[in-house]
Design a protein around this nucleic acid. Structure first.
Lengths: 251, 251
DNA sequence: GAAATAGTGTCTATCAGACAATATATC
DNA sequence: GATATATTGTCTGATAGACACTATTTC
């Protein structure tokens, strides 16, 4: 290994965040409008530099809190809690026109929030459906506010994050990260439907999730916030891996 | 985003490689002995600096070729071909005592090679069973050549790479990356057995893999290199995702 | 009562795992 | 023939998906 600490090529290291939530039956991501060049005025993923004494996951959690007020895995949290994990690292030499920047992308899954906190140093921020941000269907899905692709390689990062979320809720209990602390089976099902973009049979879904040990723990309470017959309330159980998995329907 | 190109904290960026193969019925990883401080004389994963004009995957492929002679995904390769993918990025501020180094670890899966090429700048190199390198069973599995943990955080990186390989062969055709271009169902089964450390029923395995469309393509030839009745030879089919998956037996 | 959502039960095709039986090589 | 591996077939229990039916709320 050619370690020569005095002569290594200098890199900047950033973290970028794919923050996903489910709003109004759609999978949405947090986007911020860039206030400076390059890509000034374009939408981008939130992110920022890793500080000199900071771990990558610490930097990601800090950016998440700055942008959304969410805490990552806060064990004693009064604050809303989000799931946070490393996604992938992007280091094309040309990805930032100014200098060599390696970005360690992270994926955050959060329950529906009232409205984006345009905090930190973001010029403005919004939740937008991932189809809108990515311009699926040859750009037809982009609306007036989203005519252009995301800045840098953030389209690719967002697409990778969405695919990670879509596949990971199959074999883990991660879908509960999109739900408030207490939720019904129907609310959990609507999360799966929004993330996958499919319709699921409510009866089979109910049988499946309540029959998987450790997935859901009934709180004893009920709610009727969806209308109709009152539904039992659950919290996420300790199980993180679902066996057997909840498989995406074939297309 | 607080981009200030003139005042970003400087990082060194490296790639480290988890190169896995199956030798003598055991899952083995490539380790190199460090010739310099820190961790001089200790075993480590192969790796090196990312060059100033080089993509991360390019750097990983270059290191792989330097260390093993393997080419990553060579489309017109006479050379042996390996599967190469990004694994995860490790950036604890203390992981290298000399300076801030962020390492983008990659995972390579290769067919059994004659012997490690002690090429590049590695002092020496060897294949060792991952249990030996990781010292499972409270260190009892480490032999005389492997009394100490790997250098830096390479124990963690190796463990993450092994777990990635173990889980990924469940739902993808990646196990064929451990096989030569032509292989039998029995050889493929012994790959699964070595990677997972379990025994699989040869009859159910055969029915499963030959019944999954696109997984295996018969070449028409047969071989008897395992003894017993001649077995059909196959090449890897185009399918990359296995549906339904090949599930690891419960423990 | 109509409509909506929650929850249970039933049927069927498919699949995983256990294992009998046959095929074809080497020793 | 003994032994080893390959390959096919059979049986059984679990599960996914389709869907009938009941329960309990709001309008």
């Amino acid at each position: 290994m050619p370690y020569d600490p005095s002569a290594f090529p200098p890199f900047a290291v950033t973290v970028d965040l794919v923050v996903l939530t489910v709003r109004r039956h759609a999978l949405c991501a947090l986007a911020v409008r860039r206030g400076e060049s390059p890509y000034q005025g374009r939408w981008a993923l939130p992110g920022g530099f890793v500080r000199a004494d900071e771990d990558l996951s610490t930097a990601a959690a800090r950016e998440l809190t700055e942008e959304t007020g969410l805490r990552a895995h806060d064990p004693v949290g009064q604050n809303p809690v989000a799931h946070l994990e490393q996604l992938a690292t992007y280091g094309d030499p040309q990805r930032d026109p100014r200098m060599r920047v390696v970005s360690v992308a992270h994926l955050a899954l959060a329950p529906d929030l009232p409205s984006p906190t345009a905090g930190g140093d973001a010029h403005s921020a919004r939740w937008a459906p991932v189809e809108t941000l990515l311009g699926v269907n040859d750009g037809l899905a982009r609306d007036a506010d989203q005519a252009a692709p995301l800045a840098f390689d953030h389209d690719q990062i967002l697409a990778d994050g969405v695919e990670r979320a879509r596949s990971k809720i199959e074999y883990s209990s991660l879908a509960t990260a999109f739900c408030p602390p207490e939720f019904t089976v129907g609310e959990l099902r609507r999360v799966y439907e929004a993330v996958w973009g499919v319709a699921l049979d409510p009866r089979n879904f109910h049988r499946k999730v309540t029959g998987t040990p450790g997935f859901l723990v009934p709180t004893g309470g009920t709610t009727t916030r969806q209308g109709g017959r009152p539904a039992q309330l659950f919290t996420a159980g300790g199980a993180t891996l679902l066996n057997p998995p909840m498989l995406r329907p074939e297309v």
